[in-house]
């Protein structure tokens, strides 16, 4: 009887010990996972994919009533502003007609010149539209979760809104994909100023206004200049619009206001330009940085 009591006490102590060990292991796992995600481990991205695929359908179900409510709100909002919008569209339409004639003339001229130079046109792009079902839930990150269905999407593909580049594909699951926005701290895109061709890197900083860094100190850059992708690194093709310079700081960095209103997006376009994947880009980028 006494021995049984001793065993029970020992069993209780053992239970407490294992419980504490489990807690320590959880802390260690969390810490090691942070270190692993620093080196972009395959295990980490596999965990990422699994969680996205398991929880994606739940998000989809929850997003449906929210989307319906938003659409209803947008419908009534649009009706109340229809007169002003119509007036604006009429004036825009007049300008577009003038531009259309110019574009037609330039297109013909462009074709003739291209033929003269034996210019090889770039490969045609393919794209798909994806519905946004979730966006990052706190102030530390800027990302979107989209439903891609059975479409073939690759890590590193360019994501566009109607107007401009908004990010790139980060993780691809079975039916869902995670998109890192240009405003996220993980985002680095080689860009240039359209007017002066001054190069730099668009760096996200987790605010709505990313920064353009690594530009030459004597570069001619003004507020209002259009920022486009430079094509360096091969992840993004050159010439895709991103935003406008909204401020030039004394330290040489510039604030870039994105062209697209990222917060109002419901659908995005994932474009396949047939370019090199993200890994190749990051290697190129690291090498060019090392060379500097």
């Amino acid at each position: 009887m006494k021995q049984r009591k001793v065993w029970l006490i020992r069993f209780g102590e053992l239970k407490v010990f294992f419980r504490r060990l489990f807690v320590v292991l959880l802390f260690l796992t969390a810490f090691l996972t942070i270190l692993l995600s620093r080196v972009d481990s395959l295990i980490v991205s596999a965990v990422d994919k699994v969680i996205i695929d398991v929880t994606g359908p739940v998000m989809q179900v929850l997003e449906f009533p929210a989307r319906t409510m938003h659409q209803a709100y947008t419908y009534f909002y649009d009706i109340s502003h229809i007169y002003a919008e119509n007036k604006q569209l009429r004036s825009e339409n007049k300008q577009m007609m003038i531009l259309q004639n110019k574009v037609r003339t330039l297109e013909v001229e462009n074709q003739l010149l291209a033929r003269l130079l034996n210019y090889v046109p770039p490969q045609e792009v393919s794209y798909m539209s994806a519905r946004i079902i979730a966006e990052s839930g706190d102030n530390f990150a800027h990302l979107l979760l989209v439903y891609i269905g059975d479409e073939a999407v690759r890590k590193g593909q360019v994501v566009l809104s109607n107007e401009s580049v908004i990010g790139r594909v980060d993780t691809v699951g079975e039916h869902f994909a995670k998109i890192i926005l240009i405003t996220d701290i993980n985002s680095r895109i080689p860009v240039l100023i359209e007017r002066t061709r001054a190069r730099g890197i668009l760096s996200g900083n987790n605010t709505a206004i990313p920064e353009m860094i690594f530009t030459r100190s004597n570069a001619d850059i003004q507020v209002g200049d259009v920022v486009v992708t430079s094509g360096v690194g091969g992840l993004f093709p050159s010439g895709l619009p991103i935003g406008f310079i909204s401020a030039v700081n004394e330290d040489g960095s510039m604030k870039v206001e994105p062209m697209a209103d990222i917060s109002r997006l419901e659908y995005v376009r994932i474009v396949d330009y047939g370019l090199a994947g993200e890994n190749e880009f990051s290697e190129d980028f690291t090498e060019s940085n090392d060379a500097k």
């Binding site: 807690v23 969390a30 990052s136 839930g137 706190d138």
Partner: peptide
Amino acid sequence: GLMLDVYGSTPLGLNALLLL
């Protein structure tokens, strides 16, 4: 925490560690 890390794009394990 893991769920927050995946959806919040923070380094995997960071929110888990903080919530622990």
